[in-house]
Design a protein around this nucleic acid. Structure first.
Lengths: 190, 190
DNA sequence: GCATAACTGGAGGAATTCCATCCACTTGTC
DNA sequence: GACAAGTGGATGGAATTCCTCCAGTTATGC
């Protein structure tokens, strides 16, 4: 997000809060969240929102960027800190499910599929994620841990897996249960 | 759906079209679809919709019922026609992913979690589905095809799995790819 | 066929939601 | 301490959506 002409410190802080609030509400309520609700959640006036993001799409784009960046961060941390590619992949997929990126995708894509592709910074993070997935996949296959017959395209599908968790259940339990099963499906047989 | 006092043939047809249209649009657009759009999709006037479903929730309930019933039908057909419990379960899970029941759940539950529980006919179909899952799970485990350490609760989570399919890809390919992986995760090792 | 009760559709007014501007006031920064 | 930068929310207007009402249509029994 190229911060054009240096923002004043408080303005920058408000901007960031807006983006985070937008991402949260996008995940909770879909693309049609009232802008006023985003402003409220960010603890900021509606006027401030409009100054920083003169049109809705600008905010949506910033929020998408934030979401993708979190994903990339998760992946990079996993790659850096885990002992091997298989474990990195496992951790990454778990992180994806928790971030609910799939929900973001389905909420946003239909509305902006070209606006998003047009935004260069989005394209860039997306590339980072793609590369990461590539490295993890081929790495884990080389280690003999990942089945040879899954492609990076398959992994990409799994990245945006969504599960519906009934209110009675703990989200993170459910997520890890499903992801574990998924990983068992991915693991090479010996 | 107890059809109280016999509906005239055309009225009944219109009612059914409304429910189907409502389910479709619910899946496509979420709980906030304009009622007028549902009426249009059903090829019916808005007045007709209101006569049959005086309040929004009545229609939502009918649509949920329709969705669950389709699910139960899929499951029952699978149970009846497949040679063993494991294959029935596989077919059932595939069907679930294609019906996108997860999307229905996440769209509707938050809005009506008690209204739905209150409707007896919904509770009933839900029970049918639950029983089906039970039978399939324990059956497939008895056959030695399904891992012993998965519970029916796990399977229930998988029932409402959602995947985001990028527009470039064929939905059914993606679905079957993911479901196959899932099933490999569920299959007992020998 | 025909009578009639059931059913239909959509025009249109009320109500709600959402947008987006504007400006008096506050706050960072040099 | 001065001044540019930033803030917030009241407000009018646009756009949706709801939902009633009734003149007209259609199925059904005889």
């Amino acid at each position: 997000m190229a911060a054009q002409p240096e923002l004043r410190a408080d303005a920058r802080r408000n901007r960031d809060q807006l983006v985070v609030a937008a991402l949260d509400l996008l995940l909770e309520q879909g693309v049609d969240v009232p802008l006023e609700e985003i402003a409220r959640r960010a603890g900021v006036g509606i006027g401030t929102l409009y100054r920083r993001f003169p049109e809705r799409d600008a905010l949506l784009r910033a929020a998408s960027y934030e979401g993708l960046r979190r994903l990339a961060d998760t992946g990079e941390a996993a790659w850096r800190e885990e002992p091997d590619a298989w474990h990195a992949l496992s951790r990454f997929l778990r992180g994806c499910a928790e971030l609910r990126l799939g929900a973001l995708m389905s909420a946003i894509e239909p509305r902006l599929h070209d606006a998003i592709r047009a935004a260069p910074e989005l394209h860039e993070v997306r590339q980072v994620v793609t590369d990461l997935v590539d490295r993890m996949t081929t790495g884990a296959q080389a280690e003999g841990a990942l089945r040879k017959d899954v492609s990076t395209a398959d992994i990409s599908l799994l990245i945006s897996l969504q599960i519906y968790v009934p209110p009675s259940q703990s989200t993170s339990d459910a997520v890890s249960r499903v992801v574990d099963l998924m990983l068992d499906g991915l693991r090479a047989r010996d």
